[in-house]
Amino acid sequence: MRIKVAVLLLALLGGCDNPAPDQKGFAGLGNQAAAFKPVVPGRVFSFPADHGPHDGFRIEWWYVTANLKDDQGNEFGAQWTLFRSALNAASEQAGWGSPIIWLGHAAVTSATVHYAAERYARGGVGQAGVNLTPFSAWIDDWHFSSQASADNPLADMQLNARDKAFNYQLRLTSARPLVLQGDKGFSQKSEQGQASYYYSQPFFQASGSLEIDGKVYQVSGPAWLDREWSSQPLTANQTGWDWFSLHLDSGEQVMLYRMRHKDGEPYLTGTWIDARGQTQSLHAADILLTAQDTAKVAGRAMPVRWSIKIPGKQLDITLDALNPKAWMDLRIPYWEGPVQLSGSHAGQGYLEMTGY
């Protein structure tokens, strides 16, 4: 689902233009956004155009996670995210008058260490952005860039990020179709109608090098891209979420998210993606999602072991964090890291937890 942590943080960077709003919902994402474009059902997606930015919406992201393994069987995770946040609904423009703020997150995880880094940039001055031809999303020297033809840029991508303790350079390829989440890309987040436009490429295969603490590993494994944009994706009553992207060894993929509330039952939904890329929406009645063991992380009790049952798909699995300490110790902190699957299906995936 990837409703991320950018709005309040980015508002701080643009504070000379607008004061930071009062927090409503996690990271202010429940603030009213009447001045921005609404998310409504029935949008017709257009590719490759929708890989690029969307003027008039308040928040948008390009989000990659990869489950990686080296020849010795050591497991790793890599995350790369670029957020685009608008201070107002005006169109993008060159120079310091740009209404756009950019934020990048990158992280690596092994069974023993987790490192995270962030970058910030003001739009309009060339420090960060997204181009369509050729497709490239970047902030500073972090890049997610196409090596393929302009009409199908996501077929062959290069992904890289570096910080003091880590560096990765990965090639991501896929000949599989994109997946529209929710109702043909309209992804509802609450019973009140909050929503985003949301599509994924869950069939990437990644390969390349990953360096942690000076040691370089040659790695490969499945990767997942999420693309989402919205103006008010949460209600003020929603305190955070638990998001799962799962690669089953059967070739199927699963996306689930649970939006937690200050009071009342969580909003739970997801998508079952078969090996051909065909989708089926999952609703709360279809899913049994239970947090099990917790770990003490950054002074919080984080649920790092989960049970997921989808009886209609004969799925009954347990998820365990590769590294329970996968805490993103950034301006607005959250937990994100790779998970291992056992039970009726083997596999791997990623888990994100916010608002704890």
Rank of each mutant, 00 (worst) to 15 (best):
A155D: 15
R122W: 04
Y217P: 02
D249V: 03
G126V: 04
S46V: 12
Y63K: 03
L330T: 14
E60T: 10
A223N: 08
S190N: 04
K262S: 14
G355S: 09
G355P: 07
A175R: 11
F36A: 05
W306F: 05
G208M: 05
T65A: 13
V130S: 05
P134I: 02
L289K: 10
L170W: 07
K325W: 06
R171N: 15
L12I: 00
P303S: 06
V179S: 08
A49C: 02
Q188V: 14
I287L: 13
D55V: 00
T279D: 04
A117M: 06
Y63Q: 09
I3M: 08
D183P: 02
R43N: 13
A284N: 13
T279H: 04
A195D: 12
A298T: 07
A150Y: 06
G30S: 03
Y120W: 13
A236Q: 08
L13D: 01
Q188Y: 04
A106Y: 02
F45D: 03
A111Y: 12
G25I: 09
L319E: 13
R2H: 14
N31G: 12
G270C: 03
G182R: 10
Y198S: 09
A298K: 13
D316A: 15
R162V: 12
L178Y: 11
H51D: 15
V7D: 08
P99M: 01
Q127M: 02
L13I: 01
G264L: 08
G277Y: 06
G14F: 01
P311Q: 11
T112F: 10
L159D: 10
S200W: 04
G343R: 08
